[in-house]
Amino acid sequence: MLDRESTFADSEIVNLLKTRFVPVAIDQANQRRQQDTEGDFYRKIAGQGPRSDFNGTTQGFYIATAAGKLLLYNNNRDPAKVRRLMKEKLAEFESSDAARASTAAIKTTKVDERYNARLPEGGLVLRVQAKVLDGYEPTTNRWQSIFQSAMSRDNLWISASEHQELVRGQVPRSLQERIARFHLVDNTRGEPPMWKKEEIRRMDMQLRNGRITGVAHLNTAREDRGYETQLLGVVDVKNGTIVRFDMVSKGDFWGAGAYTGGAPNGKFPLAISFTLADGTDIADDLPPQGSRGWLRGYLR
């Protein structure tokens, strides 16, 4: 979130990435664990840096050659610093043999299915975007300001059988629970805690005449985090396929998770939008955050 609005909002960095580098964005929680060719290549690079214990996070910015030689590790997002380091390492790379040596493309010999989740055939992807609408104390702090205006992004996956139930005018219970547990969350300031099944106090969605309505009450046993919300939207079907699924959740959220600190005090309005993905955004292809490492658990 902070990187998007700071480091990658810098026009010179953006231009360098477009023209002089091959940019790749990953959830390193997958690559540092996955036992396959993809994971091996990542660990080869990250293992040369200071975060070489793959039982913990290895997050940061890396610059490396195609042969897997690490040129830079940096975990500071300040645009001026990143820009300077990128130029230095680019000059270093271009004056080295690596820029002229022929490097073979690495052939994939092993794929760890646990970290290569794919949308089930006949399923649907919905973009899910959340925003805190009000409640923050005014701030002049640049980073807090980014958090306070942030809009998150995740994907909701719908299975083929759920898709067909929606076409028939039903909102399957499995889909309602998935929306509640993994997508009615405040992920605007970082990785959120997902809801446990027993934390769904109420989830009732209905689809009638192309209009989807619903109510959800979620809260922890200690009641230190919760969301009481309404859902409303429009679903259009054409030739047995969902062609439009626009929905909004709007309600009162309270509390935060270990990585989503800095929430407004007390209850605050949180809105979440759902939109059928059309494949025009590269993030449309990403698996849902809630499916990480356990797609079956997410889809059940």
């Binding site: 990187d3 091959v22 790749v24 964005a25 990953i26 959830d27 910015f61 995740d154 993030a283």
Partner: peptide
Amino acid sequence: QHTAAQQAKPIFIWAMDGHPLGCT
């Protein structure tokens, strides 16, 4: 890696907890 090898460019890796293009 394939593109970097083909175009003789360095790779810039944005590695985060949670996918940096989505999820948070």
